[in-house]
């Protein structure tokens, strides 16, 4: 089974919201769908889900156009919502009914998910009586209600305290391990690195980075060096061709052109009797890759 998005484009008037977006998810797992604010992520997700018409392109699931009316798709939107004045349980039954679930199956699913998310006591409350975090849990339960094969999570962890964030993560892991195809959008790069192997990064509607995260990092090599020493090392770094990025109490960060330059830097420090407290040569983080690809001209719309 695979979800394939090919050449997806959308314009609003003269504004290009999404341009020629293509990616595929060939096996179960969590796929990162990243981008700056206003990059076109939500528009793309809406097109994938068929909520929004696309100017061009296609979305296929198992080789056939994806039809959310017939396929089981779960969606946790970035701007989540519940009916503020209505009873939570009645809303869940309504959501289940429009997914085509019978009441018995809906009851079983709701009971399980509410128990798993530790929100059983809120079943008979109105949404407006719940905290934002608990509303978010109800929303996640609604997204997973029909045991979907494809799950789209748009900023699932935003606004959650660490305990509930861990709870959400454990549920996402469960879904991943049970063979679900999950698309996750988040601005929390650590979370993405924790869950995702493959990604696509959008900026101003265009794909600026795409592929397997480890491959991307490996291709870039270990180019980030953090050094902490008991004496100034600026001169040595300059002689070795290192570019200073920033200095913090935890040490100085440099960009290195090659691992050999980093090796020379270490050798010179030791030769000069400098006591090296920290010497960390590593691949770029996803955060750094994100900022590098999108930084400087962030669209705040």
């Amino acid at each position: 089974m695979s979800l394939v998005v090919e050449h997806l484009s959308k314009k609003f008037g003269d504004h290009i919201a999404v341009e020629d977006l293509s990616f595929s998810i060939e096996k179960p797992g969590v796929f990162a769908f990243l981008g700056t604010n206003g990059a076109g992520k939500s528009t793309s997700i809406r097109m994938i889900l068929g909520m929004l018409s696309k100017d061009s392109g296609s979305v296929t699931w198992n080789g056939k156009p994806l039809d959310i009316m017939t396929e089981k798709v779960g969606y946790l939107a970035e701007e989540r919502g519940l009916y503020p004045k209505y009873n939570i349980m009645e809303q869940m039954y309504y959501f289940a009914s429009i997914k085509g679930m019978k009441k018995k199956a809906a009851t079983a699913a709701i009971d399980y998910l509410f128990s798993r998310l530790k929100i059983e006591e809120y079943k008979k409350k109105k949404a407006e009586q719940l905290s934002k975090g608990n509303q978010q849990k109800v929303q996640l339960a609604a997204a997973l209600l029909c045991n979907p094969e494809i799950i789209i999570l748009d900023e699932p962890l935003s606004g959650l305290d660490p305990v509930n964030a861990d709870l959400f993560k454990s549920i996402i892991r469960e879904e991943r391990d049970s063979g679900k195809y999950i698309i996750m959008s988040s601005h929390q790069m650590e979370t993405i690195e924790e869950f995702c192997e493959d990604l696509v990064l959008l900026h101003r509607g265009k794909t600026v980075m795409q592929g397997n995260l480890n491959d991307i990092k490996r291709a870039r090599g270990r180019e980030n060096l953090t050094v902490k020493a008991d004496k100034p090392i600026g001169d040595i770094a300059e002689r070795c061709g290192l570019t200073l990025v920033e200095e913090t109490p935890n040490g100085s960060s440099f960009k290195v052109k090659s691992e050999e330059d980093a090796g020379r830097m270490l050798k010179e420090m030791l030769d000069n009797g400098i006591n090296v407290i920290k010497f960390d040569l590593r691949e770029p983080s996803l955060h750094e890759l994100f900022v590098e690809k999108c930084g400087g001209e962030v669209n705040e719309d």
Binding site: I68, M69, G81, Y83, P84, F95, I98
Partner: peptide
Amino acid sequence: AIEKSSRVIEYLLTSIK
């Protein structure tokens, strides 16, 4: 308007037109 302002509409549209 309630469904739009509360964003419930996004959820509904994943299942129905």
